[in-house]
């Protein structure tokens, strides 16, 4: 099958690849461009582990055709830190013990980033809504919600574990 050329920005750098017409963005990122930040959890849009931002919008990369990303800006968890300096959300997740196995964490962080970009001061209910597309099987959501709220407040931990 003929391959399609696609060019886009990935976490700030220009990338190019040839993709099949049915290839999804998740496979392109992981197997084509070696960005292993987004994860495969279901491949059918139900778990959120593959969450990325496309031009700032939350997208499930397993349901996004790679070819449609032409000219767009794709952001993954791999681009969240500024060099060695963690993003406030990343720091808050560490401080609040908001990951156990860590497999949902890239998707959670990306969803939280989109939420805070749109709504810097969310209520608890809004945080819950913001991560409602992301499944965590280990942590329990409470620590994740606390971490996101703390990041919104400026990274101050509200309680020590």
């Amino acid at each position: 099958m003929a391959k399609i050329p696609v060019q886009f920005r990935l976490n700030g750098s220009d990338r190019a690849a040839f993709v099949g017409p049915a290839d999804n963005l998740l496979t392109l990122l992981r197997r084509g461009l070696n960005d292993f930040g987004p994860k495969y959890g279901c491949g059918q849009g139900t778990c959120g582990t593959c969450t990325v931002l496309v031009d700032g919008d939350l997208q499930l990369s397993c349901l996004t055709l790679a070819a449609t990303c032409e000219g767009k800006h794709v952001e993954t968890v791999s681009g969240m830190a500024e060099g060695p300096v963690l993003h406030p959300l990343q720091q808050a997740f560490m401080d609040h013990f908001a990951a156990q196995c860590g497999f949902c964490t890239p998707g959670m962080l990306t969803a939280a980033k989109a939420l805070l970009a749109a709504n810097p001061n969310p209520t608890r209910a809004e945080v819950i809504d913001g991560i409602s597309g992301n499944i965590c099987r280990c942590t329990g959501y409470d620590a994740i919600i606390e971490a996101i709220l703390a990041a919104a407040r400026g990274g101050q931990a509200t309680r020590a574990y």
Partner: peptide, 27 residues
Amino acid sequence: KGAQRQDMPGHVTGRSPFFDDHAFEGL
């Protein structure tokens, strides 16, 4: 007492090496 887990930096940066996070030529 509170203690930071050693795998947390990997988890929050997406660098924790899960089994599928390895590139191979000719996979």
